Simulated assay, not measured.
Amino acid sequence: MLQLGDEVTLYSVVFVLVLLGTRSPLWTTALTASLYLFVAMFRFPQVPQSRARQVLHPASGSTGSGQVSVVAHRGGGHDAPENTIASIREASKNGATGVELDLEFSADGVPILMHDDTVDRTTNGSGPLSQMMLSELGKLDAAAKHRLRETFAGEKIPTLDEAVQECIRLQLTVYFDVKGHPDEAAAALKALYKKHPVLYNSSIVCSFEPKVIYRMRQSDPEVVTALTHRPWSLSRLGDGAPRFSSPWKHHWMTLMDMALDWAHHHILWKLCGISAFLIQKNFVSLDYIQYWSQRGVEVVAWTVNTQVEKEYYQELLKVNYITDSLLEDCEPHY
Rank of each mutant, 00 (worst) to 15 (best):
M1N: 09
S12G: 15
V13C: 07
V18I: 15
V18S: 05
L19Y: 14
L20M: 08
T22D: 05
L26C: 08
T29Y: 10
T29G: 14
L31S: 09
T32D: 10
L35M: 15
A40V: 09
A40F: 11
F42H: 10
F42N: 05
P45S: 14
P45K: 08
Q46M: 08
P48F: 11
Q49V: 03
S50K: 03
R53K: 07
Q54C: 02
Q54V: 02
V55L: 01
P58Y: 07
G61T: 07
S62K: 02
S62C: 14
T63S: 09
T63I: 11
Q67L: 04
R74G: 09
G75H: 01
D79T: 04
D79W: 01
T84K: 00
A86K: 14
S87L: 04
S87E: 06
A91L: 01
K93A: 13
N94F: 03
D102L: 00
S106P: 04
A107P: 06
D108E: 05
V110I: 15
M114N: 10
H115E: 06
V119P: 07
D120A: 13
G127L: 11
P128Q: 15
P128Y: 09
P128C: 13
S130P: 06
Q131I: 15
E136P: 02
K139R: 15
R147Y: 06
L148Y: 15
L148W: 15
A153D: 09
K156P: 11
K156H: 13
T159S: 05
D161A: 05
E162H: 04
Q165L: 05
V178F: 00
G180Q: 10
H181K: 12
E184G: 01
K190A: 06
A191Q: 13
H196T: 03
S202I: 00
P210M: 07
M216E: 00
M216D: 02
R217C: 00
S219N: 13
D220N: 10
V224L: 01
P231N: 09
W232G: 02
W232N: 13
G238Y: 07
G238H: 12
G238P: 08
D239N: 14
P242A: 06
F244S: 05
S246Q: 05
W252T: 06
D261A: 04
W262I: 07
H264D: 05
H266S: 10
I267K: 10
W269Y: 09
K281P: 02
K281E: 10
N282A: 12
N282C: 05
V284T: 08
V284E: 03
I289T: 15
Q290C: 09
R295T: 12
R295K: 14
V297W: 02
V297Y: 03
V297L: 03
V299C: 08
T306N: 07
Q307P: 15
E309K: 13
Q314T: 06
L316F: 10
L316E: 13
T323W: 04
D324M: 03
D324H: 02
S325A: 08
L327N: 07
E328A: 13
E328R: 09
D329H: 03
P332Q: 08
